[in-house]
Every structure is written in C-alpha cells, then in structure tokens.
Computed example of a mutant assay.
Amino acid sequence: MLEFALPIRIYIEDTDAGGIVYYVNYLKYFERARTELIRSMGVDKTAVMEDGSVFVVTSASIDYLLPARLDDEVVANAKVIAAGGASIVFEQAVLRGEQVLARGQVTAALTDGKTGKPKRMPIGLRKVLKGALIPKEVTDDR
C-alpha cells in the first residue's frame, strides 16, 4: 500500500491566539498530503481537469487527538484505502514524531465540472489507484 508523508512546519498563520493549530488547518494539511500522494503516483491533476473533470471532497471525518503548536514539525500522511469507478477513499493523519495529532478519512469523487455529477475515472487513473492498493480493496476495476 502506497503512503505519502509530507513534512510541515507550523507557522504563526496556522495557529490561534494561544499558539495552537486552528482545527480547520488539519484539513488543509490533509489536502496537501493527498495532492502529493496522487502526484507521487505520476498523476497530473491538471491533466485530469483538462476535460472539465473536477475532484471534489464528498465526505470528511476527522478526530482531533492532540494539539499541534507553533513551530512544531509535523508530518501529514495520506494513503488510498479504497477506490471505485468515480471515488477514492483516503486514510489520513497528522503526526508529531510517533504521536498521532489528528486522523481521519476523506472521500473524493471525480465529477463533471459543469454539472457537478459524478463521472467515471479514466481507466489509466483507476489502474494507478489499483496498483496502490491491496487488490481486494479495489471495489470497481472495470
């Protein structure tokens, strides 16, 4: 299973008045890690978008376990845990060393940019995703 780890330094802009990372920023860190994971698979998101397709987040759940603080060095992880004809499910976490600060799952779907309706991912993308998974986790490989 392919996993991507993105190092992140916590800056003042990431924190609240108490120097603790503002909760919504974890979702931004998740987004960056997902983007880099897909890029590491050789998939150019802009190429997917050339035909008017757009990836959209359809579901996100996150558990906040410990706070990240100003000047911390953390790592945002992302891995694909399931893929269907039009959607991808990611398992994600933000860690400081061995400590899990936040963890969650994000589902993204490929949609038609004009109508907003789901559309099947190109076969090449589905094959790349299948290669990143344990075969039984791929739910639709047609």
Rank of each mutant, 00 (worst) to 15 (best):
Y29K: 04
E36S: 12
F30Q: 06
G104K: 04
V56F: 02
V75F: 09
V21K: 09
P118E: 03
G19P: 10
S53V: 09
K136Y: 07
I20R: 05
G42P: 02
T139P: 00
R96T: 11
T35S: 02
E98Y: 00
V74M: 06
G113W: 00
V106C: 09
V75H: 05
R126E: 06
A102F: 08
S59V: 00
S61R: 13
Q92L: 12
R32V: 03
Q99E: 14
L37W: 01
F55H: 01
R34Q: 10
V74G: 00
M49Q: 11
F90T: 11
V21M: 12
G104Y: 00
A33H: 04
R69M: 14
L133G: 09
I62G: 12
P67M: 07
P135H: 12
K79E: 13
N25I: 08
E3I: 15
R120G: 13
G116P: 04
D140E: 14
T35M: 03
I38Q: 08
L70W: 02
V80T: 08
G131S: 08
L101C: 06
F90M: 07
L129W: 11
I134R: 15
V74S: 00
Q92V: 11
G85R: 14
A86Q: 08
F4Q: 06
M1V: 15
K127I: 01
L133K: 07
T15K: 05
P122L: 04
V138R: 09
I134H: 15
V54C: 12
I81N: 08
I62D: 04
E13A: 00
Y11A: 07
I123D: 09
A86L: 07
R69C: 14
